[in-house]
């Protein structure tokens, strides 16, 4: 019995991590307004497909 987890040491080393620019874009308002529209359109398309 032991107290351990898979991370963060090893797992974090091998996990894909976003660049600083990508992290910045995640809360950059103009880009997120664009993503808001894109994501909503994609969801609506998927919902339409699911209902039909």
């Amino acid at each position: 019995m032991s107290d351990e987890t898979n991370g963060p040491t090893d797992m974090v080393k091998f996990a894909m991590k976003p660049s600083g620019f990508v992290v910045f874009l995640r809360t950059f308002l103009p880009y997120q307004v664009y993503r808001f529209i894109r994501v909503n359109l994609r969801m609506l398309a998927m919902i339409w497909k699911s209902h039909n």
């Binding site: 898979n6 797992m11 974090v12 996990a15 894909m16 992290v23």
Partner: peptide
């Protein structure tokens, strides 16, 4: 095309959340 595993792990790694699967 990437596995969703990579997407999820990247978020955990970025936030410093450890995981046990």
């Amino acid at each position: 095309i990437i596995p969703g595993k990579l997407f999820a792990e990247s978020l955990f790694a970025e936030r410093g959340v450890e995981w046990v699967t």
